[in-house]
Write a protein that binds this DNA or RNA. Sequence first.
DNA 1: TTTCCTCTAGTTTTT
DNA 2: CTAGAGGAAA
Length: 826
Amino acid sequence: MSNGFDDIPFFDEEPAPRKPVAGSKVPPAPGAGLGIAARAMAARDQARMPDYLSGLNPEQREAVESVDGPVLVLAGAGTGKTRVLTTRIAHILASNRAFPSQILAVTFTNKAAREMKERIGHLVGGAVEGMPWLGTFHSIGVKLLRRHAELVGLSSDFTILDTDDVVRLIKQIIQAEGLDDKRWPAKQFAAMIDGWKNKGLDPARVPEGDARAFGNGKGRELYVAYQNRLKTLNACDFGDLLLHPIRMFKANPDVLKEYHQRFRYILVDEYQDTNTAQYMWLRLLAQRPEGVPQNVCCVGDDDQSIYGWRGAEVDNILRFEKDFPGAKVIKLERNYRSTEHILGAAGHLIAHNEGRLGKTLFTDRIDPNDDKVVVHAAWDSEEEARAVGEEIEQLQRQQHPLNDMAILVRASFQMREFEDRFVTLGLNYRVIGGPRFYERLEIRDAMAYFRLVCQPADDLAFERIVNTPKRGLGDTTIRNLHDYARARDIPMLAAAADIIETDELKPKARKALFDVVTDFRRWQSLLENTPHTELAEQILDESGYTAMWHNDKSAEAPGRLENLKELIRSMEAFESMRGFLEHVSLVMDAETNENLDAVSIMTLHSAKGLEFETVFLPGWEEGLFPHQRALDEGGRSGLEEERRLAYVGITRAKRRCHIWFVSNRRIHGLWQSTLPSRFLDELPPAHVEVAETETSYGGYGRNPYGQSRFDKQEPFQNSYSTPGWKRAQANRTDATRDNWGTRSGHAVERIGYGESGPRAKTIEGELVAKSTTTEPSRFSVGDRVFHLKFGNGNIASIEGNKLTIDFDRAGQKRVLDGFVERVQAS
DNA sequence: TTTCCTCTAGTTTTT
DNA sequence: CTAGAGGAAA
């Protein structure tokens, strides 16, 4: 849990590593307290061929052992990419080429970094201490910046702003420029700045046209003003965590040189996702002066590049060989995940893209009993959800764990239908990627208190909480204070301390502000000597923040209090409040509860890197997938990215992949009839079967879809002529919309779930319906209960795990007992 | 200050 | 349609 930079010596105290000599013996490892390198060496010495190399195929092994010089590993889905990366690091360590602190290993997400640490630990036998430079681009950026902040005009205790802070800040700037913040939304400009920063553009380099496009042509001025404001706040946004180090390195070649010496080996995960700024950062660090080997290894898959829309440049991976002359390119094509049908379908689909580096996944685990990829047609999204639910239940009856199944959607609105259905069925599910814990209102408020205690100059935090809970400090007072602070160039909290000594404010506001200032003074004085969790609780109590939610009668209030408790709990793992704040600003991910058996529902984007026995891919319709906007805004390359997304979806499946399309979908409230996705036509018949629908309608054979519905003739185009396909097509054309109820043999029961109000989600961002149990209900009629969505109510009747409840506010609803908690009768 | 109403926009997401 | 934001009224 490092919260800074001073815990790692800049250069190792140990002697410089020697070049390994073939067959050289390494001295036996002494007992306890071994460094990672020593342990790795010991592990290697146990066998002639190091253990860690034994299970690798020849290509993987080559990727692991080609440690010197630039290497690009093109690792297709399920080909053991992470394994190669981690084994490679273990190998570098074990062969005595570098110390752990001389390896730079970069990932995109914290999750990936964590996983790598863990797996290296396994390989080397023990926890990985001393890999200080394994982390995300951003966390490594922070580490560099904390060390050299003064070189870019910051002080090393700078704050990291998240998107929410940034938007509020930009809004102020837009208003300060005298622009209408409704006509020029701060959010949009924040996105523009983010985009520019992804491209490595400082204000001067933003193309004229782009800069003029915002704020009556004032885009550039606004960007400058924003950067200035950040500097006065001693703050960075996420983009700066990359750009500042780049600037720093460019302006200080001596510093860059130090890092060149330090980082003997550089590894990059998910290279296809790097944006221009990351690419610049990497080249600065990786490209060495003549004669020095560039030990860079980038691992990626151009076919899985799905983040172009947020600045990723597939081109980075495509031109690796130009950037690093003499680079070795190793393709990993042997797939260990999926059946031949799944690979065949995915491979045929992705072959429709141009400009690929070209890989074909194969497996030799061929089993004639393997299912083909199945394409299903449904009348509308409701039927789609119902049918998927049935399939899941059927698999469940065959003892397949729900954890092995996932529904991967293109857009998050599609999730709702599945959630509704699963709640009705009492089927456990979890939603991955919902609102994040640290993005919740109450968490952000609490964090603002903590930030302000640790960093009295954090004006954004100050503004967020001065009047939360309500203290009668309205707009006018704040504006006053703001001007006062600006005029004197001091932080707002300091300004508040000053202004209460004057008579500039009304007595009421003055008193309120006085209380705030004294509270913060007190908390700051406690910061060093009070256990931080205790202090945190104290802050939330004394500020009246907890009381505010206690008094709040709304349905969400108890959940929010619970989240605050969870926040305090999660602080325990940290040494100090500062350490905790640093962690939170970078690590925004929530963990899922692995112990629960549940179907996962997530977007295709968040599914990258995961795998499931069975994957359901609903919503393969033109306009949704490929998404209309991707086509409109991205043209050909937009379509190709969508296709890669489809590829990612299919290759998540190990054994079973079910694709769905519907004929009617409600978009923006109105029903629209839809066409099957062109991607369906791009699947190879040999690996695909069309499901016979159990429903009894249709069969007219009116098939408007022949060959080449969308594209010019393409070599892969094929027209399905199987009876099943024809029927599926006919179904979607001729079905009548009276399928409410039991047509598919399943009693449809609607329970209240669809009115406005927040979605019921647990702190992990999961919504979990308890499965039907045979146990007697833990509730009885008349109990007073609380429901996250509907609030308080009394139980009117009970059937199994389904409760009928008279809610105080929402009226009578039927809900599953897993969604309510018993409360004391009031 | 709160509540209610109107308006608007509406893929994908990490850090 | 529907969630969220912002403005107007109580």
